[in-house]
Design a binder for these strands. Sequence first.
RNA 1: GGGUCACUGGCAGAGUGGUCGAUUGCACCGGUCUUGAAAACCGGCGAGGGUAACACCUCCCAAGGUUCAAAUCCUUGGUGGCCCGCCA
Length: 414
Amino acid sequence: MIDLKLIQNSFDSTATALRRKKVDSELIESLKIANENLKTAKLAYESLQAKQNEMSRLFGQYKKEGKSTDELKIEVDANKLLLNELLETQRQAEEALEAIAMRVPNLPDAEVPDGEDENDNVEIQKVLTPPTFEFTPKEHWELAEQNGWIDFERGVKLAKSRFSVVSGIGARLERALINFMLDFNRERGFMEVSVPMLVNRRALEGTGQLPKFEDDLFKVEEEELFLIPTAEVPLTNLYQDEIINAAELPIKMTGYTSCFRKEAGSGGRDVRGMIRQHQFHKVELVAITRADQSDVVFDEMVACASDLLAALGLPHRLVTLCTGDLGFGAARTVDLEVWLPGQNTYREISSVSNTRDFQARRARIRYKEEGKNMLAHTLNGSSLAVGRTMIAIMENFQQEDGSIRIPDVLQKYL
RNA sequence: GGGUCACUGGCAGAGUGGUCGAUUGCACCGGUCUUGAAAACCGGCGAGGGUAACACCUCCCAAGGUUCAAAUCCUUGGUGGCCCGCCA
């Protein structure tokens, strides 16, 4: 959630910033009004509550002194009716505010370039040179089937389209990658955490997937639980509703989970192969920091993911997302795009975001510094999507006969 | 899954309808004493919101309910202990 004080105190600049993220002024205006309504309602309710408390105290005193309470009771009863009305008004004002506020995205950082979509993203850096081939490189699905690594048909048989089965060396490579990434991240100071892959509504609200993006999530109906779309959700929400000692920050975590996404809006994109699946494996990085630490940790996370790719020998580039491509909760995002020779293009394999205090305000993640409670900053980044890393390895390290060379760093994991 | 007992400030632990947001001990912070420390003594000390600062509001696992008034009574849920059943 964005800071409502910003709406209250510096409306114009906040509205301008939000407009960069395609939020229309009307919504911002209604947010301001809803906030003011709540403040008014609260004030009215609380001062009447104070009166009620005072009368109840008197009631007890009268009883003790043996005085008659008949008159007081009439007054107190009348006040209670009014109190209930004001409470209801306040409740409605709260609901109205939340309905709007929870659907307003985060403000982009000032340095984030303006833009409409991914075409306006800005390349920062290329790492490693794409390999040249003396033959026409194949796409990963061809290589995967030829090597017997991935079985797309049987995945569909077991579940539905966009599911697949990985077996043999492919399955072992998948496991090797997960272990390699977790070890790599641990050496960079990220503590490994194993978390639930089903979470409740509150957790998803905390990180911003709900209420707005329920259509993208798989839900276990009877339990009101959801399959996680990313480990960012359980990892960040570990500290939901907590006040952390400032000295313990930054908290840097890494975790491996499966991720589940409905891919509702993706239409017919990437139907072939393993680029876009309903279930995929991912090793994630999450950090909870003090407000003044998040920029440094952000760079650490980008470096961690980029160095991991480099260690695997995978050419890639770093891209700053423009305002139009920025996610709901992100103030700033750097994507890592890996080179895919079969597709002759760079494709996203990791995404590192700083949400600043946006998630922390929703999830109530705070830290105590010199006796004051401050909202933490939260950051998340994929330390590589495992499936897409497999794809990149297949396409970059393919030989003319279709066999695939395994990167040296993975040898000891196989 | 069934039964039963419990859940109170950092910890321990009082409080069973009314000046209780909560006795007390430990821990913690300040002071006196001391060369310094410990001990002893004195004072302070739960949390969230709100305010320029007060005021004020809320919080005794959570959500409802009864009552003028709830930590205290009732209902449901959660978590933990023990017993039974089941399972990896």
